[in-house]
Design a protein around this nucleic acid. Structure first.
Lengths: 257, 257
DNA sequence: ACCACATTAATGTATAGACAAATATAACTG
DNA sequence: CAGTTATATTTGTCTATACATTAATGTGGT
């Protein structure tokens, strides 16, 4: 892992305010919380990226004018929240962004398939500029007729179709969506990088597939499908709405805790 | 809230071991962890129940022979893990057991329906002593031929069947399962009380229902069902395995974060 | 180049003490 | 008795320090 970035561009805004003598009387937020906020802002803004080493406790303590124990508390809590990873003797690092929901993992289907030791490939069936119609416009929060990108991709696991991904994307959040090479990177993977993911909403249902979907999955239209509707939120807006069709006989969601 | 129980029955087993001079050299587990373990054991064993006040930091510090800060760390961490609730000026209390998973709620279906403002009722279709066959025996970790309880219940939302609950239960974890009045309490609700829940594993798939299931749900056998397989763990063993059938047209799982 | 050893740096744990803030209880007052 | 005030209790935060543990780095010797 590389040493921590010396980018002083984003100094703690509250560093001066922190010099109020330490434990102030009217301090609205405690010092450890200000430190947490600062670090979170650096991570979420992308200044400190995944794997980067962040300043050592001593350094932060000096910067914020607090004792090491206070910094320790901030970092320890962020580690328990899986924002940071701490390695004794080595340093503190920005953790992998944890997008995997507890149950339905948000990992890309490609990753999942490769994790099983199988081969993944995908076919692009459609890629177009579409116009927002209801109820899609309402879900995205854009006026009817606004431009939206639309893609339909089939994912294969060892040449067996495993998922049809029908996705609508907000051009403002991902302007170069149409120029992507989907054989190299899945739409999901691209979106995770382009627009920092803030949240996910999903809905699972069982449906019989329309003929078009059934054909792409190579299944008869009588075979039930597990359908995952997924909305990803970025910067307070809906960045992407995907409908993922899985053949019931070949796919299950699993989880636990 | 009542004052904390004076039950001295379960003194910290490691209280003596804790008197090794505090920070020992070869101490396998740190002091704060021993305190956490002790508190967790008291909560999970039921000695300290939901809402009970637990001893104050000072008291625990004295009992374990450590400083207040060390106890503070243990309690704060348990609070962040939602095992305890801390109220400044008042005390520390055992929190509500949190069973709700992030996505597929583990709440009873009855609760869910009532939360929607609808009426819930259930029909008991089968209640019997069965014998463990494979693969069930393997999943429970009992020998083939061992006794298991088996129930089939249909849940209604406003007289519309919404779920068929096909459940197998380990008699050792819930000996009086056969004597229950399932119209008053769902099997799930009972099991949550009888056997402290430690974990859940689940799997979701889309299937066409067998005729028996379709009949109970009042749907044609061509209608796909959302099937949730759920294993609940208690005391390190599988306490219950449920297969929950939902008509795809009437039910969806939803979640988000 | 390689291995063994010492040094340095970073986090992990723990302490004793201090004050702040919120709550609960006791004492006082009308 | 009710309302107010004082007091004690309990958790919340912070400090300065100490030593342990782990990892990375430097240093010598072979």
């Amino acid at each position: 892992m590389d040493r921590h970035n010396g980018s002083d561009s984003g100094k703690p805004a509250s560093a001066a305010a922190a010099a109020d003598g330490g434990r102030g009387a009217g301090t609205a937020t405690p010092a450890y919380q200000r430190i947490k906020d600062y670090i979170l802002s650096q991570v979420q803004s992308g200044h400190w990226r995944e794997g980067d080493a962040i300043p050592a406790e001593q350094a932060l303590a000096k910067t914020f004018g607090v004792s090491r124990m206070t910094v320790n508390r901030a970092l320890s809590e962020l580690a328990s929240e899986q924002v940071l990873i701490r390695v004794q003797g080595s340093g503190t690092f920005v953790a992998q962004q944890k997008f995997e929901a507890t149950l339905v993992d948000i990992r890309s289907i490609a990753e999942e398939i490769r994790a099983r030791g199988h081969a993944h490939r995908s076919e692009l069936h459609r890629l177009e500029r579409g116009k927002a119609r209801e109820p899609l416009a309402g879900q995205f929060g854009v006026p009817v007729g606004a431009a939206l990108f639309h893609s339909v991709i089939v994912h294969f696991e060892n040449d067996l179709p495993i998922q049809v991904e029908d996705r609508w994307v907000n051009p403002e959040q991902a302007p170069d969506y149409m120029q992507l090479d989907f054989t190299r990177m899945t739409a999901n993977e691209y979106l995770m990088r382009a627009a920092p993911l803030q949240g996910v909403r999903y809905r699972i249902e069982a449906l019989l597939p329309p003929r078009e979907i059934a054909d792409m999955l190579h299944i008869p239209p009588q075979e039930p499908c597990l359908v995952l509707h997924r909305q990803t939120l970025s910067q307070g807006r809906v960045a992407s709405i995907a409908t993922l069709w899985h053949p019931g006989s070949r796919y299950q969601f699993a989880g636990g805790y």
